[in-house]
């Protein structure tokens, strides 16, 4: 880490892949202040964050991904303080180290399945490796659909593509926002298992934020907002 001011902290957070301190966020100047519990996650560990709608789940996820700047507090990912990064560097850091899985939309509609994965690798400055894309597609059961348009995929297939897109570049952290809430029980199970598998294979930390209690049993660690 080139930031000398961080040197002292490096010792402190040495074994944590993700660490947050006193995170708060405020949408409007006089709006309610959302404050979040501290999170500290060792490498390879997963976390489920449960909470009802409107409680600020997505806000927390966006704070963790550096998409929002907290009013107070800090987010450290792999010993890097997201707050300290300039916007361009933050984009690159996010692209390289974080994989995001969303609830519904996942991919760029003008590109087909295969090209979406290629674009994902391109923008995260990773090597564009066709073989790697093939492997991930196979693991997620999408090999047959690689030439398909995004609009031709079913909801379950889309969710699997979303997972492929979030893991293809071997991120250190996998953040999933309500990945299962629009799926039926069967697909819910498949998706959560795939997410966990992919996280394990790439040795990434998986954080799932959801109000979907069906998946509680899949996680050892969970907190409720």
């Amino acid at each position: 880490m080139a930031y000398s001011s961080l040197n002292k902290r490096v010792v402190f957070i040495k074994f944590r892949m993700i660490q947050t301190e006193n995170l708060t966020y405020q949408y409007k100047k006089r709006g309610a202040i959302l404050s979040f519990p501290n999170i500290a996650l060792e490498k390879g560990k997963n976390l489920l964050i449960l909470g009802e709608s409107g409680i600020g789940k997505t806000t927390l996820l966006h704070l963790l991904a550096g998409l929002l700047k907290p009013v107070t507090g800090n987010v450290f990912i792999d010993n890097t303080d997201l707050n300290a990064l300039k916007s361009n560097k933050l984009d690159k850091f996010r692209g390289k180290n974080i994989g995001l899985v969303f609830q519904k939309k996942h991919a760029i509609v003008s590109l087909n399945v295969f090209n979406n994965l290629k674009a994902r690798l391109l923008f995260s400055n990773a090597l564009v490796h066709n073989k790697k894309i093939e492997i991930v597609l196979k693991q997620l059961g999408l090999s047959e659909l690689k030439k398909n348009k995004i609009s031709e995929l079913s909801e379950g297939q889309l969710q699997r593509l979303g997972i492929a897109l979030s893991v293809i570049h071997n991120p250190k952290v996998l953040l999933a926002d309500e990945p299962t809430s629009s799926l039926d029980d069967k697909n819910c199970k498949i998706v959560i298992k795939l997410l966990k598998n992919q996280a394990k294979q790439t040795n990434a930390n998986l954080i799932v934020i959801t109000h979907d209690h069906r998946i509680k049993s899949f996680f050892q660690n969970s907190i409720t907002l």
Binding site: K92, I98, K105, A119, F123
Partner: peptide, 18 residues
Amino acid sequence: ERAFDLAILRTYGASNFQ
């Protein structure tokens, strides 16, 4: 119309300039 696509590309690591 593609605001969402563009936002996703940003999460992929694309910069504004790209």
